[in-house]
Amino acid sequence: MSDTETGLHLHDSDLAPGDERADGREIAEGIRGYLVGLGLATLITVVAFIVSGTSLVWQPSIPIALVVLAIAQMGIHLVFFLHITTGAESLNNMLALMFGLLIVVLLIVGSLWIMTHLNHNMMPIERIIQMQH
C-alpha cells in the first residue's frame, strides 16, 4: 500500500478536496445540513401519517397525496443525506440517478398497467367453472 493510501506521511494540503480534515465551521455546517434534512423528513412523515387516517378530504385523493409526499421525502433524503445534487462534482451521480429512476418507473408503472388490463379482461372464475359443466 502506498503512502497516499495510508495518509501517514501526508500533509492536509496534499489531499484532494473533501479528503482533508474538517474544521469547526465545516462540522457546524454539516450538522446543520443533517438537522434541516431530519426536520423536513419528520414533517413530511408526520403529514403522511395524518393524511392516511384523515376523513376530512375526498378519500380517492389520499393515495395520490401519499405518493406525492413519499416522492418529496425521497428527494429530501437524496439532497440532505446522500448529497446527490445538481452540482458539477455530483453530475455523474445525478445522471445515474435519472437512468435508475427511468427503470424504476418503467418497472412499477408498466407492471401495474399490464396487470390491471389483464385483470380487467380476464373472465370471472365463476364463468369458467360454469363452462366446464
Binding site: 484532494a16 479528503d19 445515474a96 435508475g100 418497472l107
Partner: peptide, 27 residues
C-alpha cells in the same frame, strides 16, 4: 476526480441497481 468521488460514484451505481431490484418487489 479524487478517489473519494470515484468510489462514491461506483457505490452509487450499485445502490441504484439495488433500488431497481426493490422496485421489482414493489411492483
Amino acid at each position: 476526480a479524487s478517489k473519494r468521488v470515484i468510489s462514491g460514484f461506483g457505490f452509487w451505481i450499485f445502490l441504484l441497481s439495488d433500488i431497481v431490484m426493490f422496485s421489482a418487489f414493489f411492483a
